[in-house]
């Protein structure tokens, strides 16, 4: 039993961290009022770009950086559409996902299934050889992700820029009158969400699988959207939700290996079922708040007559 648990714990970060990283980006974007359905696309370009850079022999860390930049680049397209041209955010988000998946299909086709050296495990470094297996199998991405989580949580609740960002997501009119440039804040939030999504994608290929295949994001981007709703737009709750969703996902292959006959699809459904339950609870219980930013999904234009 202990072995089973340790084995599960060892692989856990591989399932949890991509969800966590991408969800932090979605939280930032949506707390600024921009409905963000893009993570599947951001992660796809991030994963492919990271792998391509590694295959070109530029080293894993440059791959991680490149994947992050790719997510950022794709989010610039999304940001331009929704913030500058005020395209409906749901449609723009879905189009961005399609664009991201399309790009990876076209550019990455000839690089499928080629293994490369990804981010080294701690046990492979000169100083980490003595670490216990649970830690030794991890990469530096684990502390990095946790650091980013704390940074985002601190930013939203403690920093002045975080106050402005939340004001934009709750009431862009009030923020505008208070001297906040609504469009700049939203654009910044969207770009950051792209970077987080790209980083999450790069994690999949460069830090976890060490290979790229088309479609390797495999719906994680959609889980992220449900996860953010489940976490009610709070960064620290995102960690809890990522542990729950990722932890269950990590459990599936292990249970099967033990010979337990558990339908995989039920496990894959879990994030969505739980999210629906949270939504139903918060909308029926009086006084409960879903936590959704009040102006989520609305595009703001000062000259609107109200």
């Amino acid at each position: 039993m202990t072995d089973f648990f340790l084995a599960w714990l060892t692989v856990l970060p591989g399932y949890v961290l991509p969800l966590l990283l991408a969800s932090l980006g979605v939280v930032l974007s949506e707390r600024a009022g921009v409905l963000n359905l893009c993570p599947e696309g951001f992660m796809a370009v991030g994963a492919m770009t990271g792998a391509l850079i590694c295959l070109a022999g530029q080293g894993p860390w440059l791959g991680v950086l490149g994947g992050t930049a790719a997510g950022l680049g794709l989010s610039a397209v999304f940001g331009l559409a929704v913030v500058v041209f005020r395209v409906e955010q749901t449609l723009a988000g879905l189009a961005t996902v399609a664009l991201g998946l399309g790009i990876t299909g076209v550019l990455g086709r000839s690089h499928v299934q080629k293994p490369f050296d990804g981010v080294p495990r701690l046990s492979e470094t000169s100083w980490g050889a003595e670490l216990p297996r649970v830690l030794g199998q991890q990469t530096l991405m684990l502390p990095l992700a946790l650091l980013l989580l704390l940074l985002v949580a601190w930013f939203l609740t403690r920093s002045a820029a975080g106050l402005r960002l939340r004001a934009v997501g709750e009431d862009p009119g009030a923020a505008d009158v208070a001297g906040v440039d609504v469009q700049i804040v939203q654009l910044g939030a969207v770009l950051t969400s792209g970077a987080f999504g790209g980083l999450a994608g790069a994690y999949l290929s460069v830090a976890s699988a060490h290979v790229w295949v088309e479609g390797m994001v495999a719906g994680r981007g959609w889980v992220v959207i449900a996860l953010v709703i489940f976490a009610r737009w709070r960064p620290l709750r995102c960690l809890a939700a990522a542990l729950l969703f990722g932890g269950t996902e990590a459990l599936m292959p292990r249970l099967q290996a033990l010979g337990v006959d558990f339908p995989v699809y039920l496990g894959a459904m879990l994030p969505y079922v739980l999210t629906l339950a949270v939504l139903a609870l918060t909308s029926t219980r009086r006084g409960a708040r879903s936590g959704a930013p009040a102006a989520l999904g609305l595009s703001y234009l000062r000259q609107d007559k109200h």
Partner: peptide
């Protein structure tokens, strides 16, 4: 023009910082 989910002080801080 007040953000409903903010406290009064947060609203004022937001505006003063904006200024």
């Amino acid at each position: 023009r007040l953000v409903g989910s903010f406290t009064v002080a947060e609203n004022v801080a937001l505006s003063l910082r904006g200024a």
